[in-house]
Amino acid sequence: MPWITVEHAGRVVFGAIDADRRRAAFVHRLCQICGEPLEERIYLLVRPMDVRAGVAPEPAVHPECLGYARQHCPMLNGDAPYYRRSPTIAGHPAGRPCDDPTCPCPDESTPADHDARAGAPADDWDAWMISPDHYRLQTGADGDILGLDLAVRVLRKRSIRRTPRREREEVLGLLRALLAPPPDDDQVP
C-alpha cells in the first residue's frame, strides 16, 4: 500500500491521499510508496495535464517502488479505465459513515482537481527519472505545496500507461473512413 494513501479503520482508501504524509514526502524527499528517503535515482509520475501545468502533484518514487506501483495502482496498470465519478471522500474517507466515536477520521474535503477528472477516461502516465539536484518544490501563493517542478532536465522517460481509448479512436476513425459511402460519380465535377 502506498505510504501516502489514507487508511481508515485498518482499510486502505484507494484514491485518497493523506495530506500530512503527502506534505512530509515532498518536504523530506520521501518516496510516496515506501516512505523511505529518495536517493540518487528519483522517478516522477507524470500525466499530460501535469506537463501542461508544469507540476507533478504526487511525491516521487524509488525505481523499485515504481515497479510496485505499476503492478498495483489501478490507474497505472490499466485496471481503472475511468476516474471515479464521485469524490473518493464524499462525506467520509471510506465512502461510508464512520460509527467509531474515537476515530480521528481524516480530512473529508474533495480534492481540488476532482471535478476536472470526474468520470473522465484515465490519462496516459509516464515516469520521468530526474537527479536529486533537480528535485524542486513548487508552491502556491498561499504557501501550499503544489508538487514537483517539471521544468527540469529529465534523464529518462518511461511510458507507464497508454490508454486504449486513443488507439480505439484512431481505429474507429479509420473504420468510419472505410465505411463511408463512396462519393456519387454524378456529383463529382
Rank of each mutant, 00 (worst) to 15 (best):
V12M: 14
G91L: 12
P57Q: 04
E40S: 14
A80C: 04
I42H: 01
V6M: 09
A180H: 14
L45C: 13
R85I: 10
G119V: 02
H8G: 08
A25M: 12
G119K: 06
L76P: 05
P164Y: 07
E108Q: 14
I145M: 02
D124Q: 02
A69I: 12
R22G: 04
A90E: 01
T139C: 15
S86N: 10
S159L: 13
A122S: 14
C65Y: 07
T88V: 15
A180L: 13
H72V: 11
A80R: 11
H92K: 09
R47H: 08
L172P: 04
L175R: 05
F26K: 10
G54S: 07
P81L: 15
D79H: 14
P132D: 04
R47V: 05
P164M: 04
A177D: 15
W125L: 15
D124C: 08
E64G: 00
Y82N: 09
C105M: 08
A53M: 15
L44D: 06
E64H: 06
P183R: 14
M129I: 02
G35I: 06
D100I: 03
Q32Y: 01
P132F: 00
W3G: 00
P37S: 12
E108M: 13
R11P: 01
L155Q: 12
I33G: 00
S109R: 03
V13M: 10
L178I: 12
D18M: 08
L38K: 02
L44Y: 10
D50Y: 02
G140M: 09
A127W: 08
E58C: 09
R166C: 01
V171E: 10
I17G: 00
G95T: 11
I145S: 02
L148C: 06
W128N: 00
I130S: 04
P104I: 04
R84D: 12
A60W: 03
P104G: 06
A56M: 05
R23T: 13
G95K: 08
S109H: 03
R165Y: 15
S109Y: 02
H92G: 14
P57C: 07
H8K: 14
G147D: 00
L175M: 06
G15W: 00
E64R: 15
V55S: 10
I33Q: 03
R161H: 01
N77P: 13
S131K: 12
D123H: 09
P74F: 01
Y82W: 05
V6Q: 14
A122C: 13
N77E: 04
L137G: 03
D133V: 06
E64D: 15
A9K: 14
L76H: 06
T110N: 07
P74Q: 02
R168C: 09
V152L: 02
Y68K: 07
P37T: 14
C73A: 13
L45F: 15
A180K: 14
V61Y: 00
R156K: 03
P101I: 04
